[in-house]
Design a protein around this nucleic acid. Structure first.
Length: 628
DNA sequence: GCCGTTTTCGGCCCGACTGTTTTCAGTCG
């Protein structure tokens, strides 16, 4: 603790604390408050706010104040941008759920590394209490009891010390604890320590496959009439934390079905199992929840279990004002306690005077407002997609990046089987270091001749072929392609594939320069993110959106499961800005064309209609756009 | 402490599961 800068409270204050706050007088320890003790990442700030809520809870503060801080913590945790960047833009006050008070404290925290208000709230509570609350099944009250009774004041050895106490049976002796909770705490610490550095969340397709396997197992049980994947999977969130399932079962069979579920062969652990729900852990550490419900309430259950949590809370608040209380069992009219049940979701929303809200946008933003005014956008559908602009083939033009595995012909065939009316071949540009300018021009000329031959062969008459190229945006913003080569192309997708660490302004300048080239029609995977591997880079999005809109350049929604880029939240912003989009798969094999549905899901999550999506336009409109 | 198309005051989602209790508190989603 050599980098300790300022004590949380001085010796004199500590003494005073002991005489004034009865419940904390026993705490004999020193807490030190380092600047940025909680860090400035979204995760860190979220934990800071949650810690304030915990401190308030321990001190018996007004429970709605506590809820406000917990809510703010949730909001920060789920922000799509870093809160520190938002603060730097001076837009802290615009975040829904963070009001003037919390915003001013955070402003101070970002400026100075601490907030005097928070420091006051934390007084008398060891920092280790907040650390402990990160462990599953340990909340503020248990954490405080453990820290206080076992004198766990050293953050460095906190978890080891608590483990030792469990093993020595000292935890079970504490009031409110017993043998079982002691064992549970031991397990939970082990789990926490193992999972601590893992930020891993499943990609959508991975979670789908996993869910399918379990659903298949459940369907073998004749007592289960219907089973669905709900939660973030149904909302098509970019990454999935755990899998939520719901099953329709006769009431008498609830227990039997729960038992059957907990005996799933690949379950490594049964987390909990009650009468109506159970949770298991499946290799490799994925939590799967199952809820069982009778047919007549399945609509309410679908609604409840699809979430999101934020959507449900807002919906329940809205319903409450109308005199109704919502739950997974139905809608209860408060004046006479009558429960209305719903076997489908459409009726559920209709009863509340709302139009049906598609799962993809149930994120607790403006969707309930829009549904109330019957002005939800008609979201683009997979069936409206007429083609794919970003497909890599096995044609060898000595590219800078990887080739695809299938030929133009094979890809055309696959696209036709999907009912597409066009395909755009966008192989990577030839490598600039191994090929001279002249060679590159020749390579592209020959490629055009080759593709033109396929077109004139009339073998694929039903499908329009566009000759595109995915071209690297070099660090200085120029494109990795000689000017003379552009004439052999119908369109260019400009993408950043290197030098991700430029400043926001340099990166923005770089991208805008690249978009100024003729024939650039699409900005490829605009943030460069790789889920679980690499954060996307920041751009001055307003400038980029403005420029793209002016030049009718489509922002790509790349459907590659690890990209899903533009991210849904930026899709929404850009959509409001008036931008157009191209949903592409970035396929490197014909099977990858099927990933389109994930890109469409991101577009839907971004509130897009087919008018905003270039590849949902009529072919002649697409051709006019390409030529413009 | 947050929020607003019945509110700038007066509300604030709802229920299940577990363990430690003899009726409930804590935690979670």
């Amino acid at each position: 603790m050599s980098d300790v800068v300022a004590p949380l409270f001085s010796k004199a204050e500590e003494k005073k604390e002991k005489t004034t706050k009865a419940s904390f007088t026993k705490v004999a320890h020193k807490i030190y408050f380092k600047p940025y003790l909680f860090g400035t990442s979204n995760k860190g700030v979220s934990h800071l706010l949650r810690s304030v809520a915990a401190a308030y809870l321990l001190k018996g503060e007004n429970k709605f104040k506590i809820i406000a801080y917990e809510n703010a913590a949730d909001v920060v945790e789920h922000l799509s941008r870093e809160i520190k960047d938002i603060w730097e833009d001076g837009k802290l006050y615009e975040i829904q759920g963070i009001g003037a008070s919390i915003a001013s404290h955070l402003d101070e925290y970002f400026k100075k590394g601490y907030s005097t208000h928070f420091v006051t709230i934390f007084k008398g509570i060891p920092f280790t209490v907040f650390e402990l609350t990160k462990v599953r099944s340990i909340g503020p009250k248990k954490a405080f009891k453990l820290v206080d009774n076992l004198k766990l004041y050293n953050p460095e050895s906190l978890f080891e010390d608590l483990k030792t106490a469990c093993l020595e049976g000292r935890v079970a002796l504490l009031p409110g604890f017993g043998k079982k909770s002691e064992k549970e705490i031991l397990n939970a610490i082990e789990h926490y320590l193992q999972a601590k550095d893992k930020i891993y969340r499943m990609t959508l397709p991975y979670a789908y496959r996993l869910a399918e396997e379990i659903i298949e197992y459940l369907r073998k049980n004749p007592k289960i009439k219907r089973v669905e994947a709900l939660g973030s999977l149904r909302r098509m969130a970019p990454t999935i934390g755990d899998i939520d399932l719901a099953a329709v079962v006769e009431k008498d069979d609830f227990q039997a079905v729960i038992d059957y579920f907990t005996k799933y062969p690949k379950a490594v652990k049964v987390e909990n199992a009650g009468v109506t729900k159970a949770s298991i852990i499946v290799h490799p550490d994925v939590r799967v929840d199952l809820r069982v419900i009778e047919e007549e309430s399945f609509g309410s259950m679908l609604q409840y279990f699809t979430g999101s949590k934020a959507h449900n809370i807002k919906l329940r608040e809205y319903a409450l004002k109308k005199g109704y209380s919502l739950s997974e069992y139905g809608i209860k009219r408060l004046e006479d306690e009558k429960l209305f049940k719903f076997s489908n979701e459409e009726e559920f929303y209709k009863f509340l005077g709302l139009s049906y809200i598609p799962p993809e946008i149930r994120e607790g933003e403006e969707e309930i407002d829009l549904a109330l005014r019957k002005s939800l956008p008609k979201l683009v559908k997979l069936s409206e997609i007429k083609g794919d602009f970003h497909v890599h083939s096995s044609y060898d033009l000595k590219p800078s990046h990887d080739l695809g595995t299938h030929s133009y012909e094979e890809l055309c065939k696959e696209a036709m089987s999907l009912g597409y009316s066009f395909i755009g071949f966008s192989d990577h540009n030839p490598n600039m270091s191994n090929n001279s300018r002249e060679e590159i021009v020749t390579i592209l000329k020959e490629r055009k001749t080759y593709i033109d031959k396929i077109i004139s062969s009339k073998k694929f008459e039903r499908i329009k072929i566009f000759i595109g190229l995915e071209v690297d945006i070099l660090p200085d913003g120029s494109l990795a392609l000689p000017d003379e080569a552009f004439e052999y192309l119908d369109f260019v997708i400009a993408s950043v594939h290197s030098s991700f660490n430029l400043s926001i302004s340099a990166m923005t300048k770089r991208v805008l320069k690249a978009l100024s080239y003729p024939k650039v029609k699409i900005l490829g995977h605009p943030t460069g993110r790789l889920l679980n591997k690499r954060e996307g880079f920041e751009l001055d999005w307003e400038k980029v959106f403005e420029f793209a809109k002016k030049k009718s350049i489509a922002l790509e929604i790349n459907s590659w499961p690890e990209r899903l880029d533009l991210p849904d939240t930026l899709v929404k912003e850009a959509g409001k800005y008036g931008c157009i989009f191209a949903i592409n798969t970035d396929a490197h094999a014909k099977e990858h064309l099927a990933n389109m549905r994930f890109g469409v899901a991101m577009a839907r999550r971004g509130y897009l209609t087919k008018e905003q999506v270039v590849n949902a336009w009529d072919l002649d409109k697409i051709e006019r756009w390409i030529r413009s």
